[in-house]
Nucleic acid binder design. Structure first.
Lengths: 148, 148
DNA sequence: TTTGAAAGTATTTAGGA
DNA sequence: TCCTAAATACTTTCAAA
């Protein structure tokens, strides 16, 4: 089971993945070795799945983030459509959803031209896709993790 | 400017934030000190913004992830509405968007009951919100970073 | 800007409470 | 399970190229 120490470790590391075990240990009144043991346990249990450095996409030239809602022709088209979406590097996230759309994807592109090309030349040509709806994100004011 | 070494470092760290500089150095035929200098440079330039450990939300009891499209009463309501959304810890992401919705939020909750309560008791009571539309995510098959 | 070398920290293992 | 202590490894600084 996950106890309070585990939770504190998870919350600390989801905010800053490069925090040292030594520091987390100090904050929690345990030894660094204990933190090490707990993190290994959480990793083996699949609770902790990895760690990613976050970057400012604009500084890398990706000025536009958007969400695209996709409606598929048929429910059964999902596996094939997903494979095709995986081949588009601009697609950074995909969600299989109930409601409005069959699939919601998050896309990052350099500019409006690239977005238009992506939509027309590489998304709308996918035969399993019936239609798409684009939401351009102008700002992402909240970006945080759930608390353990 | 960002050269190839910078890009390789960014790509390595966005995949695994806990990779050692020593290892990245080895993969790129430079010294660990150089990797250190580059990472500091990227951090100071605001390209690298942080690092977060990723967790399996379900293992923490958050069984439901969903996106909620929000339509505000008036465009000018955005700043007030955002402040209210920030106070809901279940809201892990928010995007100010063009198109269909004024705001798109990502929400993580423990179960359908909690989702219903969130929607009815804490979202739909926000006076700036005219209506909401919920997309429940059943799967998130793609989760990756843009490449530098 | 990069490097090797030194100094300072952190991680990791292992034995004992 | 946790700790201390020791060994290993990594990060960080710095002077020189």
């Amino acid at each position: 089971m996950i106890d309070n120490l585990d939770k504190n470790i998870i919350n600390a590391l989801t905010e800053n993945a490069r925090l040292s075990y030594a520091e987390i240990a100090k904050d929690n009144g345990v030894s660094p070795a204990t933190v090490h043991v707990r993190v290994e346990k959480l990793r083996k249990a699949g609770v902790i799945t990895g760690a990613r450095t976050t970057v400012d996409a604009r500084k890398l030239g990706y000025d536009i983030t958007c969400f695209i809602g996709i409606i598929l022709r048929q429910a059964g088209d999902y596996p094939t459509a997903l494979k095709k979406l995986e081949n588009l590097p601009e697609v950074t996230e995909a969600y299989y959803t109930t409601g409005q759309y069959s699939v919601l994807i998050k896309v990052m592109v350099r500019n409006i031209d690239d977005l238009q090309k992506l939509l027309i030349e590489r998304l709308q040509v996918i035969e399993e896709i019936q239609s798409t709806e684009t939401l351009i994100s102008l700002q992402a004011p909240i970006q945080r993790s759930i608390r353990a």
